[in-house]
């Protein structure tokens, strides 16, 4: 792999930063240079969160350039649409099929984009747009909070990192009592992509 720029997005509280940390550590463990930078602070209060993660032999800037991200990895649909312009032409968008309407939408002042609109926005950059029912699948597994690890399982298909490395780093980041459910979630995510339910 020459370079891989991943833009990870979602809403404060969805575990975007944790997911980004895990991918970064996994890449570092396999000998790559890694730089990453997250929105912190105010955005924790339910705001839009974005993490820039860059993997290469040698990384200089921690920020991804607009229009050059290889992968957009989104935990929420509106955020996928918002950050879609970072994708390079022909890049990959992996999106949790989940909507979290912002307050302005609840107050009836503006509308949440329809699925067709979200897809159209992303299709301006690439045809490789994959929606995953991550939140629903995690609910079926009995713990909706595992959605970020389940989504990592989906993502793992597109990254040249070993399965053992993923498992080892995920275990390092989560408390022991959550290991089993999260490994199941990770496998479920991998299966979803492998079986082509895309």
């Amino acid at each position: 792999m020459k370079k891989l720029d991943l833009l990870i997005t979602g809403v404060g509280g969805q575990g975007v930063v944790l997911a980004s940390d895990i991918i970064g550590e996994a890449a570092l463990a396999e000998g790559y240079d890694v730089k990453k930078t997250d929105t912190l602070g105010m955005a924790q209060r339910g705001g839009s969160v974005v993490s820039n993660l860059r993997i290469a032999e040698k990384v200089w800037s921690p920020l991804i350039t607009e229009g050059e991200a290889d992968i957009l990895f989104a935990f929420e649909k509106l955020e996928a649409a918002r950050w879609g312009y970072y994708l390079k032409p022909g890049g990959i968008a992996i999106i949790n099929n989940h909507a979290q309407p912002p307050l302005a939408v609840s107050l009836g002042k503006t509308a949440y984009p329809t699925d067709t609109e979200v897809t159209a926005i992303l299709k301006q950059r690439t045809d490789r747009v994959y929606f995953i029912d991550g939140t629903k699948l995690a609910q079926e597994l009995g713990n909706v909070r595992t959605v970020n690890i389940l989504m990592l399982g989906c993502l793992s298909h597109f990254l040249p990192l070993k399965l053992e490395t993923w498992r080892e780093v995920i275990a390092r980041y989560l408390p022991e009592k959550l290991h089993t459910i999260n490994m199941t979630a990770f496998d479920r995510g991998r299966k979803e992509v492998r079986d082509g339910h895309l």
């Binding site: 105010m42 955005a43 924790q44 339910g46 509106l78 955020e79 649409a81 912002p102 302005a104 949440y112």
Partner: peptide, 9 residues
């Protein structure tokens, strides 16, 4: 697109 500013929890 609708903005998502930080909010009181």
């Amino acid at each position: 697109l609708p903005r998502r500013p930080p909010l009181l929890c």
